[in-house]
Design a protein around this nucleic acid. Structure first.
Length: 121
DNA sequence: GCCATGGCTAGTA
DNA sequence: GCCATGGCTAGTA
């Protein structure tokens, strides 16, 4: 795999938050997922112009600086499985259920209906 | 080398 | 299940 680094560094005030620019982009997208809806790691990656970066999205969500404000629990796997969560998948499912999402056998019920595709704008 | 993924394939029922 | 993916990190020198 390519080892080219090309590290992304912020030089504006936002760099003080110790989030990379890309992290910020991900969190901004998350804020566009309303309660009761979900999106997927892959969809966020596509929305940010890097369709193969779904795993990186997961890692970025894992270091979400503000789990209260930024709803990373609304991001699930492309097949409707719950996916990981800092506080555990069970907690993630509970949060989603509180927002009206149902599960059958660990899979989001009516996945197509509750799935949204946030765009960067 | 990992990894909060994804998509495709084989192989079962 | 399997393995490609790609960016970050631990750990060596």
């Amino acid at each position: 795999m390519s080892k080219s680094r090309e590290k992304h560094v912020n030089y504006d005030n936002e760099s003080l938050t110790q989030s990379t620019l890309k992290d910020r982009d991900v969190y901004d997208l998350l804020l566009k997922i309303p309660a009761g809806k979900v999106s997927t790691y892959g969809d966020l990656a596509k929305a940010l112009g890097n369709p193969l970066a779904s795993r990186q999205i997961g890692k970025i969500l894992g270091r979400n600086p503000n789990p209260i404000k930024v709803p990373c629990h609304r991001v699930v796997m492309s097949d409707g499985k719950v996916g990981g969560y800092f506080y555990g998948s069970d907690r993630k499912r509970e949060l989603l259920e509180q927002e009206g999402i149902s599960f059958t056998d660990e899979i989001v019920k009516d996945f197509k209906k509750v799935r949204v595709y946030p765009q960067k704008q």
